[in-house]
Nucleic acid binder design. Structure first.
Length: 417
RNA sequence: GGAGGGAUGACUGAGCGGCCGAAAGUGCUCGCCUGCUAAGCGAGUAGGGGGUGUGAAGCCCCCUCGAGGGUUCAAAUCCCUCUCCCUCCGCCA
């Protein structure tokens, strides 16, 4: 949810919104609706003030004077009720329009759209493709079974099996350890949440079509543990000393992947269900840029620690999603495709979802909305897939990344038979 | 799933139709006092919205006692629905 007052008063804020794609006329409609809402607030407040005053006088009046005064006060009720109905309608309209408006892009975010991300740095070199691409290799090793998954669940599902299943556990253990050492609270959150939680996290209404719903129980499957983590301080006013407040969430993630028909169909690059360790920070509003850099640095340490060549890109304003003011992606070289592909993502939402969540910080005498940030620590399936190509030897042996060896208990995994 | 009890400010907890946005305590802030610390003394201390200010302060008004509705001139207090928590029974990994 954006800040309506800033939309009114701060041209830079409005420009930040316009750097994203917004429906023409939306902001004008919204400000007009908000003007009307404020006018009605004043009207209703005035009527209520009169009614409150009248009621107080009745309480103080002599019992014999009361009937006449009560009759007079009763007349106010109808007028007030009508005005309140108009206000409620206006407020609902403002809310509906405001939910459509994205968080302003940060001035530092590059201009443009999907193709205009700016590469900040590249660590490691592109390499030639291995004998087998990730999907073929995983099949050869008996690590991924999409055929039976299709029987059980449909397309874009997979069984992760044998050493790949153990590699997942090793990855999760290693990454979680890194995050705990960085002061993150390790968390296994709920993956089914209410509609309200989706909305407050900034996913509804804009990304509703990407979310699995459980209509019988009014619950929704999360696409990332960011959602339940964001609800951890819902409606709370935090102490300044408690910030930053960092959580590492491990969970399964569920995504409908609507609109991706026919893309990334090989292997487990894009699936409906995967496990992920996610970082989430509640930051002091003055410190969120530094926190963002910090999350990014942790991501780079993890990806670099696995020995994967990567580059960091700064996502352009027009490609930012509704909630992010700034976003960095870490892209890893996928040899079989001969290009860099997204592995992790790290966003600063500023106060956008904190406003819906009601998560604030007591700063000096005042309270301010916190800033929320999130970043992938490890999307397990996709990380493994990159490893399938980068750790694959010409003879088919899989060389376990050094950091995972203590967790897996082996240095290499040979091909079967 | 069945039967009861509960939800009050940063926290504990009183209030059970008007004098309650709310006692008391804790915490926090400021001042005093004290070699330092602890203790003590005094004062202050909810959030949000609208308006008016030099869009600082201040001032005025409105809303909020889990959420939403209702009764009433008037609701933290009465009624209904929902959510969550606790106790007991049932079921269960």
């Amino acid at each position: 949810m954006i800040d309506l007052r800033r939309l009114r008063d701060d041209p830079a804020y409005r420009q930040g919104i316009e750097r994203k794609r917004v429906r023409p006329g939306l902001l004008e409609e919204l400000t007009a609706a908000d003007d009307e809402r404020r006018r009605l607030v004043a009207e209703v407040d005035g009527l209520r003030a009169r009614q409150n005053a009248a009621s107080r006088e009745i309480g103080r009046a002599d019992p014999q004077d009361r009937p006449a005064r009560i009759a007079a006060a009763a007349a106010l009720k109808e007028e007030l009720a009508a005005a309140e109905a108009r206000l409620a309608a206006a407020a609902a309209r403002v809310r509906a329009l405001a939910l459509e408006v994205p968080n302003p892009a940060d001035p530092a975010a590059p201009a443009g759209g999907e193709d205009d991300a700016v590469t900040l740095r590249t660590c490691g070199e592109p390499v030639a493709p291995p004998p087998l691409d990730h999907a073929a290799y995983a099949e050869r090793m008996g690590w991924v079974d999409v055929a039976h998954a299709a029987e059980a669940s449909g397309s874009r599902f997979a069984y992760l099996m044998r050493d790949a299943a153990l590699l997942e556990l090793a990855l999760v253990a290693w990454v979680t350890g890194v995050l705990v050492a960085e002061g993150f609270v390790p968390t296994v959150p709920p993956v089914l949440v209410r509609e309200r939680t989706m909305e407050e996290a900034g996913f509804f209404p804009t990304d509703r079509h990407q979310v699995y719903a459980i209509p019988d129980d009014d619950l929704y499957l999360v696409g990332t543990s960011e959602i339940p983590l964001s609800a951890l301080h819902r409606g709370e006013i935090l102490d300044e000393a408690a910030l930053p407040c960092r959580y590492a969430g491990f969970s399964s993630c569920f995504r409908r992947e609507a609109g991706t028909y026919g893309t990334d169909t090989r292997g487990i690059f894009r699936v409906h269900q995967f496990d992920k360790v996610e970082m989430f920070s509640f930051s002091h509003p003055d410190a969120s840029d530094a926190e963002h850099e910090r999350l990014l640095a942790i991501q780079e340490r993890i990806v670099g620690g696995l020995g994967l060549p990567y580059r960091v890109v700064d996502i352009a304003a027009g490609d930012l999603g509704a909630a992010a003011a700034r976003k960095f992606d870490v892209e890893v070289w996928l040899p079989s495709e001969g290009r860099w592909r997204e592995l992790t993502s790290c966003s600063n939402y500023r106060d956008f979802s904190a406003r819906r969540l009601g998560t604030r910080v007591r700063a000096g005498g005042a309270t301010r909305l916190v800033h929320t940030l999130n970043g992938t620590a490890c999307a397990v399936g996709r990380t493994l897939l990159f490893c399938f190509e980068h750790c694959q030897q010409p003879d088919g042996t899989f060389v376990v990344p050094e950091v995972l060896r203590p967790h897996l208990g082996r240095d290499t995994v040979g091909p079967p038979g």
